[in-house]
Amino acid sequence: MTSYATLTDEDLTAFLDGEVSEARSREIEARVNADPYLQQRLEALALDTELIHDAFGDLLLQAPGAPALLGSSAVTAPPTRRIWPSLVAASLAGALFAGGLGAFFADGGPQNDWRGYVASYQALYVGKTLSHLDRSDGTKAAELAIVADTIGKDIALDALTAEGSLDYKRAQILGFKGRPLIQLAFLSKMGEPLALCIIRGEAGADEAMTSAAMEGLSAASWARDGFAYILIGGTDQAAVDSAAQHFAAVL
């Protein structure tokens, strides 16, 4: 009935949000394909809603515990809460980690070294932590520029994608004892999560590359020109070493 009426921004929004019937969706698609002006209008509405979804994820981590009136003596962690050991050292110990993860850290615990913390953190990653992320190069480059800037380093997206065996997914700022630490996350061809973490270190404290298994994961670490690095993830040490050599050469 309204087939040939003008398509409003609301119609196009509902189309983008999958809120129209299949027949209506096909009709809008056909009209957009045949009309450059409609294409422009659709493009002006083509927001990356996944980005919005992800952007608000961190707010869940910052939520206070449920109020006492709910009778919850234990603070309830949302299922998406990510665990970062340095937070334990800060102030969130106790209730937050009273459950299984408390036992995890108490049982030998990670090494008292940033790389040990990284290894413990990486051990919590699974392929699905990253596999849903499918973002444009523009988004990744913009994110990478901001993240790399926190440690005062220029990192080009090309340097992370040219390696070939790893699919670059995401950059995040983490913290270790008040110092920024960046995490660049990858998926291997086998779907295993890997992370390249970089922290600003002491100038002149260069270290040759060493390989070791940490938390059951393959890892290679090195330090050069005032930055310390670790690449960790999966169980294929040769693959990790090879990718680490690449990163050491280009970063």
């Binding site: 980005l51 910052q62 970062w84 901001i146």
Partner: peptide, 8 residues
């Protein structure tokens, strides 16, 4: 110390 994604 919080894990933060600046672009996010």
């Amino acid at each position: 110390d919080a894990e933060t994604n600046a672009y996010a």
